[in-house]
Design a protein around this nucleic acid. Structure first.
Length: 476
RNA sequence: UCCUGAGUAGCUCAAUGGCAGAGCAUUCGGCUGUUAACCGAAGGGUUGUAGGUUCGAGUCCUACCUCAGGAGCCA
């Protein structure tokens, strides 16, 4: 056995039972090896002792399993080494897999041999305890916190959400086109941007959305999406905000607002379905009630091909006016403290109330144009409204998707840019898209972290990304 | 930026203005089925910082620092 600086402890393995004959596997796949000898490569997660019987718990990145080490049945060095081994020391362990009803996972490992790869020194014990800890302490030790079963499960679900999101577009005729991270100006002219020097050309900014560039690639390729990090220097300190977050943004030519809402519905349905298919055990570890996710996709047709027909789950759709009426009613019944003023955007408590009325994500469309971005197409039936949609996640997780049909008329877009006091020169390329073969088109952006927080049922988006960047933290 | 709250042992938290404490973690000892095991013992403190009130301040007052939750803004 090749070790870095450890030693193989078994002194005289029985013929045919040496460590080398054990098959290397993972804890996640341990159920396929019942009554077989296996080798696991991982870390010591916890250790309980009861006299001459040790109960180490091993983890290997795919799960945890308890080992059983009776003093009388293993070589002396194996027992003594493990008895005093420090938590999170790395090791390989060989043993026999046994199904056991007393084990939470259903399986235990009868340890036969052990090799320590690196022993955590007693002077610097592993700082993350199994007991409760505070947010600041955990975030200061985020590089270690992610080793815990719950955090690992969240990161696995995040990976599946990201894969499912890209997979949906990849299988529906979309081409992934990556917009630049460094941009010369604000896309929307509103959010606070991270600024940096850019050689002799002055300032550059970290992107807050790739949308305008996606409109350009959509005109080239028809259906496109981008998937990458975005940055906002807003001084927001809430459970829904990060300064660096990941966004997936589709943009589609010849698509109107209704088509966009249908796309968003099919897209979210696909993501939730995938997570339920692959991560029910992880969701249990995280503590999420899966029946709430099953309710989201209830009634949806099975996997659609290409055009997404009939694959929607029937997400409720509310116009801004309908949502406003709902909020007024809620205020009169004493369910909301503040009264919503017609024409204003919805606040967080408003969004929470609206989403709490439904088991599925809610699509609120046609907001007053005044509170929305300059590039949104006015509703021809009521030009004071914008052809836009916000998708509000259930259980108060807030807006996870924001999208709209875009202005496709050159003159109107130019007036909008001027009215918003945006630098006309910087938008010449964007105006070109309306000068050379403009067509109706729509797109949306979904924040991955809010989606993960919703699907996993987390208190805060900081747990949805390996290393969260927030207003007060950029370490580790 | 504003509002609210919290800073005490490595961690989580107690302590009426009157001796600085517990659980966990660490170290030592005990226990052959433990499930964040349990039992016994030991070590571990400039109570966020700087002032002030008081015979006496972890506790009251002022300023600052750090963190958390919320608002606004947003995904």
């Amino acid at each position: 056995m090749a070790n870095v600086n450890g030693t193989t402890l078994s002194s005289s393995p029985a013929p045919g039972a040496s460590a080398s004959s054990a098959r290397t596997t993972t804890i996640a796949a341990i159920g396929q090896h019942v009554d077989q000898r296996v080798m696991l490569r991982g870390w010591l997660y916890n250790l309980r002792a009861s006299g001459k019987l040790l109960f180490p718990i091993f983890r290997d990145g795919t799960g945890t399993i308890q080992g059983i080490v009776p003093k009388a049945e293993v070589p002396e060095p194996v027992f003594e080494t493990l008895k005093s081994l420090t938590l999170e020391s790395s090791l390989t362990v060989t043993g026999r897999v046994r199904a056991d009803h007393r084990a939470p996972s259903g399986f235990e490992l009868d340890v036969e041999d052990l090799s320590v790869i690196q022993r955590v020194p007693e002077e610097t014990p592993y700082p993350i305890q199994l007991k409760e800890a505070g947010v600041d302490f955990l975030m200061e030790h985020r590089h270690l916190w992610i080793r815990t079963p719950r955090q690992s499960a969240i990161l696995r679900v995040r990976a599946t959400i990201m894969r499912a999101a890209a997979e949906y577009f990849d299988t529906h005729g979309f081409t992934r086109t990556d917009p630049p991270i460094l941009t010369p100006n604000a896309c929307e002219g509103t959010s606070e941007l991270f600024e940096m020097d850019y050689f002799d050309d002055g300032k550059a900014y970290l992107t807050q959305s790739g949308q305008l560039y996606m409109e350009a690639t959509a005109m080239a390729l028809g259906r496109v999406y981008s998937f990458g990090p975005t940055f906002r220097a807003e001084k927001s300190k809430t459970r829904r905000h990060l300064t660096e977050f990941w966004m997936i943004e589709p943009e589609v030519t010849y698509m109107d607002l209704d088509g966009l809402m249908h796309l968003a519905e099919c897209f979210l349905t696909h993501i939730v379905r995938r997570v339920l298919e692959l991560h029910t055990p992880d969701l249990k570890t995280i503590g999420k009630d899966v029946t709430k996710l099953e309710a989201v996709i209830a009634g949806a047709a099975t996997e659609d091909k290409g055009e997404c027909k009939g694959a929607g789950s029937g997400f409720p759709r509310l116009s801004y006016d309908q949502a406003h009426a709902m909020l007024i009613d809620a205020h009169q019944r004493g369910l909301l403290e503040t009264v919503h003023r017609y024409g204003d955007d919805f606040g967080s408590p408003d969004e929470t109330y609206i989403s709490s009325q439904f088991a599925k994500p809610v699509m609120v469309h046609r907001y007053p144009a005044e509170v929305k971005a300059f590039y949104m197409q006015p509703d021809p039936l009521d030009p004071s409204k914008a052809l836009c949609v916000d998708v509000l996640a259930p259980e108060g997780y807030g807006e996870i998707i924001g999208g709209s049909q875009r202005v496709d008329d050159y003159d109107l877009l130019e007036r909008r840019i001027r009215a918003h006091n945006l630098p006309m020169a910087a938008f010449q390329w964007y105006l070109d898209l309306r000068r050379y073969g403009s067509v109706p088109h729509s797109g949306f952006g979904m924040g991955i972290e809010r989606c993960v927080a919703w699907i996993c049922g987390l208190e805060h988006v900081r747990e949805t990304i390996p290393f969260a960047r927030t207003l007060n933290r950029i370490y580790p």
